[in-house]
């Protein structure tokens, strides 16, 4: 892990010089005032580098992070996106778990609903988001909520599928065991199916979290937004500010990692029996 990181860093420097050298040469040929004389030296000082030099990235990171709660700072906008993603994920969990229970509970419901559920996931979010935003806007739903709903729209499916598999996961012998106790359907659900589904729930939530994050960022990009990582990405890409884009990307990656880490922590709290287990 650490070796891979060190290797990546070691390779980054020559790669960065190589991809930036062309642009640096062109700037020099055009007689731009860069304060450097050779293409290699200028490669670390371009205003919009393809790959930023570590020092450049560090400077931008610092500049864009303060003051942390200003509406123009990246941390503030990361929080906005995080909020949308988390709310979206919560909605997706409730919807997904409810659907899973219904799918497992009734074959008829599954036969009728499943094709539509699958169809719902074939619509690209990027196409769906503007339409959904407009429709919701007509009902006065604006701001962060439509983004959370779009995040929920793509995140509920993995939850529903995962939890349904989990609810079906008990061994037939375990089901027979409860039958010999004359357990009610309700008891079988609470004491067998639900706990058996928890590991599946967390696995699918981790998938859903990344999907929800993509959903909220795409929603921010493709609808009218005044905050969020997506809005910042759209702005800076129009301005070709690659340094800013790199900083925003880093924050986005950090947010994704943080979400999955929090879910991992929650998983250990909720399924303590798996701690130390090798599988």
């Amino acid at each position: 892990m650490i070796i891979v990181a060190a290797l990546a860093l070691a390779l980054y420097w020559p790669l960065m010089l190589w991809v930036n050298a062309g642009a640096a040469q062109r700037s020099l040929d055009n007689g731009a005032e860069l304060g450097c004389t050779t293409a290699i030296a200028c490669a670390t000082q371009l205003r919009n580098p393809v790959l930023p030099a570590p020092a450049q990235l560090g400077n931008s990171l610092r500049a864009m992070s303060v003051p942390p709660l200003a509406p123009t700072s990246v941390p503030y906008n990361t929080l906005i996106t995080a909020g949308e993603t988390v709310v979206g994920l919560l909605i997706a969990s409730v919807l997904g778990i409810g659907l899973a229970v219904a799918l497992v509970g009734s074959r008829a419901f599954e036969r009728v609903t499943l094709p539509w559920l699958i169809a719902s996931q074939t619509v690209p979010v990027i196409a769906l988001a503007p339409m959904l935003a407009v429709v919701l806007g007509q009902y006065g739903v604006q701001g962060w909520l439509p983004k959370a709903l779009i995040a929920a729209y793509i995140a509920f499916f993995p939850v529903a599928v995962g939890v349904a598999a989990g609810l079906r996961s008990p061994d037939p012998m375990q089901e027979d065991l409860l039958t010999t106790y004359r357990a009610s359907g309700w008891q079988t659900f609470w004491k067998l199916r639900l706990p058996a589904s928890l590991p599946f729930l967390f696995t699918s939530l981790k998938v859903a979290a990344t999907a929800a994050l993509i959903g909220s960022i795409v929603a921010e990009i493709s609808t009218i937004s005044f905050s969020g990582l997506g809005k910042m990405l759209a702005e800076n890409s129009r301005a070709s500010d690659t340094l800013a884009l790199w900083v925003i990307m880093l924050y986005g990656a950090g947010l994704g990692i943080a979400l999955v880490a929090v879910l991992g922590l929650l998983e250990r709290l909720v399924t303590p029996w798996r701690a130390g287990q090798s599988r």
Binding site: D171, Q174, L177, K191, P195, A196, W273
Partner: peptide, 27 residues
């Protein structure tokens, strides 16, 4: 009757004690 299956069929999220408590909970 009590039934002992060919495999233990314990509930993996319950401790040993809670597995023995299972029929008493259900009943």
């Amino acid at each position: 009757y009590g039934y002992v299956f060919q495999s233990p069929a314990l509930l993996e999220w319950r401790t040993v004690l809670n597995n023995v408590l299972l029929p008493l909970d259900v009943m």
